[in-house]
Design a protein around this nucleic acid. Structure first.
Lengths: 244, 244
DNA sequence: CTCACTGAAAGGTGTTACCAATGGTGGGGA
DNA sequence: TCCCCACCATTGGTAACACCTTTCAGTGAG
């Protein structure tokens, strides 16, 4: 059976267990490795051509994300989605890369709808002067790019603005969602859920949010953000998989 | 300094690295090990009397939570709070156990205020018949216990009701916050932030939420939950550390 | 035929020793 | 003074081993 190193991706800076971790994480979150499926350390060693140490470390990481449990004699068992740590950045990443993509995108969007309005309100209270200035600046730039239909740079600004709002909220739990929101916005564009040209309402609402936050009007900021996200949710509705 | 095994808790089912992980996690989140502080595997081995393997595995775990980074030749460096994975259950647990307790409680409460109203609305749409029935049942029981001033079992029901709502929402991101909400409610009671006898308004609002969800009136459920949480936030205000 | 005991095997847990890679530090030369 | 290079501390990775828990099959008694 020989050694036959698989060498996933020529070890491009990725520290060995990282590649193994990625491979297994993807397979489990994609459902290729169904819940209840059993793994063994020996199996992992053989399959990826790594040492026991590496196999054990990746297994520990998977376990700490709730993707597997490890028990003596019985081995490593794949866990059902309900016990996955869905806020773990890598889990989110894997799910967005796999077949669960639009389900994940939908539940994350619902999370955004919950969090971002309050984050905007908090930002209106807590943001620094520089942050407020940057916000209105961003909204203006977004209008320019949006009206000229340049989707990629528009998305970058969109990400920057929402990230800035979360950061400015001063709540660490909100700040920690920065990457999630960025991933959602990127995924949404990649999935073609954006119109060719951002709708004028969205541009207006971004403006409104920025100005409200800058002016410290937290209620206005909250409702504007709520309307903005309602817009986003409606734009997403077309790909509903369940009842129409 | 010698060997001096620390033996945190006589290995009661905890698999060795778990005790080391807990000890280090607590120290880092508590700030005892300040950001920038350097650790080495040898140091961990010596201090806890464990083998290199165990030291390495715990270090990987800490790294995957963003508490440290590990680089060759440099060693293991404690990271600042900004890079911690604050949705990681163990990180939340450690912070609630340490001096950052009320800061953590406050930011988590703000998260609840964002999420739970939408979760209630979703529950009003998605809950099963059994879940709806259980909700009104719980609200009734809470009223009984609340009016008789039995705080501990009241808290248990409170936790059960909010957990049920999150679960019934059908959104995995909301469901995953079940433990967080439970921890907040428990922490709030332990910290003495609850009045001796739950205020009548709170009891009424729990009732209202339950009935609205049971009836499928998602807007009513959302606003009732919002008012309930406003109540909670106000009860929490007294211990504000910053500007009043 | 069923149930309880027993023993072996499977597979994670923990330890040790060793070599490879890497990047900071300090010394030496221009 | 400044730059380059060699050294070495420290993690990354491999290998081989002892140990302990848990499962499971086989066996014997009732």
């Amino acid at each position: 059976m020989g050694k036959e190193r698989v060498d996933t991706g020529a070890g491009n800076g990725a520290s060995l267990h990282h590649s193994v971790l990625d491979a297994l994480g993807l397979e489990i979150t994609a459902g290729t490795l169904a819940p209840g499926h059993g793994l063994t350390l020996d199996g992992i060693q053989e399959r990826f051509g790594v040492s026991r140490t590496v196999a054990r470390e990746t297994m520990r990481l998977l376990e700490s994300m709730g993707l597997v449990v490890s028990r003596r004699r019985v081995g490593i068992t794949v866990q059902p989605p309900g016990s996955w740590h869905v806020y773990e950045p890598r889990v989110i990443w894997w799910r967005l890369a796999g077949p669960g993509r639009d389900t994940q995108l939908r539940s994350l969007t619902e999370l955004r709808i919950a969090v971002e309005p309050l984050a905007a309100a908090a930002a209106a209270r807590e943001a620094t002067t520089q942050q407020r200035e940057r916000l209105v600046e961003l909204a203006a730039e977004m209008r320019d790019l949006g009206e000229s239909g340049r989707l990629e740079p528009f998305m970058d600004l969109d990400i920057e603005m929402h990230s800035l709002l979360l950061r400015a909220s001063g709540n660490e739990m909100f700040v920690a969602l920065t990457d999630v929101v960025a991933a959602v916005l990127r995924g949404r564009t990649q999935l073609g859920l954006m119109p060719h040209r951002p709708v004028p309402e969205a541009l207006d609402l971004h403006d409104e949010v920025a100005r409200a936050v800058a002016a410290g009007e937290h209620e206005a900021a909250e409702t504007a953000m709520r309307r903005l996200l309602a817009e986003v949710r409606d734009a997403m509705a077309p790909i509903r998989p369940r009842r129409h």
